[in-house]
């Protein structure tokens, strides 16, 4: 699958280490199926994100600049297999802004809204965004 350079693959299928990776994967597939972007556009965005790396606070990292940045446990990844979906998400955020689906501010605010929703939710109750 040259569309997804370096995609972690096992038995010809993508493998996910954590659920958020699958969520990010599913968003890209769904947006492509909806015709929001072509695979050419996607693979270009992804290749750029991989090239820039996860630590570069460049224009691709729309949220990272505003939020707290990637947490410590995300920060010490050496090989592409571990950081692949970090790049994937950065590329997706970049494309979402480039395609006018969202704006960097809006994304950053939403990250903060979720963080606050967790902090405001008593343990054991479902976390929901308050007013959207």
């Amino acid at each position: 699958m040259s569309l997804f350079p370096d995609l972690p693959i096992e038995n010809n299928e993508p493998v996910f280490k954590e659920p958020w990776e699958a969520q990010a994967f599913s968003l890209v597939i769904a947006l492509h199926e909806k015709g929001v972007f072509s695979w050419d556009e996607w693979s270009e965005a992804l290749a750029k994100a991989i090239h820039w790396g996860p630590h570069q606070a460049g224009e691709n990292d729309v949220v990272q600049r505003v939020g707290e940045g990637l947490g410590g446990r995300m920060g010490e990844k050496g090989n592409i297999g571990d950081s692949y979906y970090q790049h994937w998400l950065a590329a997706l955020e970049h494309l979402a802004v480039a395609k006018g689906l969202s704006e960097a501010d809006e994304l950053a605010q939403r990250v903060q809204a979720w963080r606050e929703a967790y902090l405001a939710t008593p343990h054991g109750q479902p976390v929901e965004l308050a007013n959207n």
Partner: peptide
Amino acid sequence: HTDPPSDIELRVKALES
């Protein structure tokens, strides 16, 4: 309260929502 998940999980949640 509930400890928020990692930043990257919050970013995915933000974009998805």
